[in-house]
């Protein structure tokens, strides 16, 4: 069984355009929090990319990559946002 190449190509192009849009938000930003949200979205896009690629080369082993990226992306997002929260509080205390 093989999926039509045009379908895979369309899926890849949707994901690439999504990646470019998220990257534009990462560059424009308006503050670090928008950038963290964009990084979170980019992790989801990469997971989608790996999944479509697994269908493309027909290897089931690539699902493991999706598992690991989803774990690491969640930990990274939560760690950075908690770090920022604690950091602003400490700076505030130092200034006063």
């Amino acid at each position: 069984m093989a999926i039509n190449n045009i379908v895979l190509l369309l899926s890849f192009s949707f994901l690439i355009v999504a990646f470019i849009l998220a990257f534009v938000r990462l560059l424009l930003g308006q503050g670090i929090y928008n950038r963290i949200a964009a990084m979170d979205l980019i992790a989801s896009i990469v997971i989608g990319f790996v999944l479509v690629y697994a269908v493309f080369i027909q290897m089931g082993l690539y699902i493991d990559v999706a598992v690991i990226i989803s774990l690491v992306a969640f930990l990274g997002t939560v760690a950075v946002s908690i770090y920022l929260k604690n950091n602003t509080n400490k700076n505030d205390g130092d200034n006063h």
Binding site: L10, S11, F12, F14, L15, V17, A18, F19, L21, A22, R25, A37, A38, L41, S44, I45, G48, V52
Partner: peptide, 11 residues
């Protein structure tokens, strides 16, 4: 992949 594209458009 279209829904992931939509979420990037939304951001």
């Amino acid at each position: 992949s279209f829904f992931i594209f939509l979420s990037a458009l939304g951001i």
